[in-house]
């Protein structure tokens, strides 16, 4: 900020607005969001063993290294300390299946950081959520490796790689009856899903852990309620109406809310500042769009889980939404057509 001092060196400083600054900086927010993901990370380590920690750490390290290497190579200011690459790596790591070989996180991180973020101009200019593009790239490039799910083992022990299907995968291929067979009754199914004692990506299985982090972000005001509530709400309503076999209004919204990446997506991915609308009304529309697309893919699509593609598709609409819900300039007066003539 350029400051102009009066000739007498008095403390009279003239500077452009804003004059009141908050303590919040980009890096502070990034590190807080990373901290909010801590419960989910701990649950991942608890259920999937040391390999989970190794995979998440490797993803973070390679994401930060990719950002550093790119910025050095392009002679740009190195901004790895703002935590955005760390957060991207953490989110991508939490979105990987626990069985992937070590090179998968590295490829995913490089795609997320270099292809999705830096080539578009760095933080603040990316069209799509980097972690999600990283995961989409991996899912399409390595369709087999990215869909091998391991059974959780609990208590921080190394797992013996017993593979199984995710609850949503079972839903897709064999239906709700089979799911009930596996988990006993509805209550124990909900309990397993809430705690995270099910197969799935590292950080998405435990709905409660993700929810704790999400509520922390809401209380601190880092995210507003609009996107998570409209996302989860529209997904729940659609699951209730269309989720059942045969008749309408017989679906199971709780099961859909707790399973898959819905919680993680709604609180941590869809609310990304850069790739989601900044106008409140637009955020509601964005969330409803995400919820609709998620349920469309889950119930009618080829993939068992649709959160990732739903958010990526809605990312495309973000500029359009922002433009259509543009807020009025403060103090501007609407001029009537007759008067304007």
């Amino acid at each position: 900020m350029e400051t102009v001092r009066t000739p007498k060196e008095q403390q009279l400083i003239i500077s452009a607005s804003p004059h009141i600054r908050s303590e919040e900086t980009t890096s502070r927010i990034m590190w807080s969001v990373s901290a909010a993901l801590l419960p989910a990370t701990i649950m991942a380590a608890y259920f999937f063993g040391p390999k989970a920690i190794f995979l998440i750490a490797l993803t973070i390290v390679s994401a930060v290294a990719a950002e550093y290497a790119y910025q050095r190579a392009m002679n740009k200011e190195v901004t790895v300390c703002d935590g955005s690459a760390f957060l991207t790596g953490l989110l991508l790591g939490l979105n990987l299946p626990p069985t992937v070989p070590f090179y998968i996180p590295i490829v995913g991180s490089v795609v997320a950081i270099v292809l999705t973020k830096q080539l578009f101009g760095g933080l603040g200019f990316n069209v799509f959520n980097p972690a999600l593009i990283g995961r989409a790239f991996l899912l399409i490039s390595f369709p087999k490796l990215m869909t091998i799910w391991a059974e959780p083992t609990a208590q921080f022990v190394a797992m013996d790689a017993k593979t199984t299907a995710t609850p949503l995968g079972i839903m897709k291929t064999e239906g709700l009856a089979k799911l009930m067979e596996v988990f006993g009754d509805k209550v124990s199914l909900y309990k397993s899903l809430a705690v995270g004692n099910v197969a799935g990506s590292l950080g998405e299985t435990s709905a409660i852990a993700v929810l704790v982090g999400g509520i922390f972000l809401l209380i601190r005001g880092y995210i507003s309620w609009h996107i998570p509530v409209s996302f989860l709400g529209s997904a729940a309503v659609l699951a209730w109406i269309f989720g059942g076999k045969g008749a309408l209004f017989t679906g199971d919204p709780i099961m859909h809310l707790l399973s898959g990446g819905l919680m993680l997506g709604a609180f941590f991915m869809a609310t990304d500042y850069v790739t989601s609308p900044s106008v409140k009304k637009g955020q509601l529309l964005f969330g409803v769009g995400c919820g609709f697309l998620t349920m469309l893919i889950r119930l009618k699509g080829g993939y068992p889980e649709g959160v990732m593609f739903a958010i990526l598709i809605m990312n495309c609409f973000t500029p359009l939404i922002d433009r259509s819900f543009k807020s009025e300039v403060f103090g501007a007066v609407k001029v009537k057509k007759e008067a304007a003539k």
């Binding site: 490829v107 790239f137 399409i140 490039s141 390595f142 369709p143």
Partner: peptide, 9 residues
């Protein structure tokens, strides 16, 4: 190595 490269995307 990277199946995505022979796909349209």
């Amino acid at each position: 190595p990277l199946l995505i490269l022979i796909l349209p995307a």
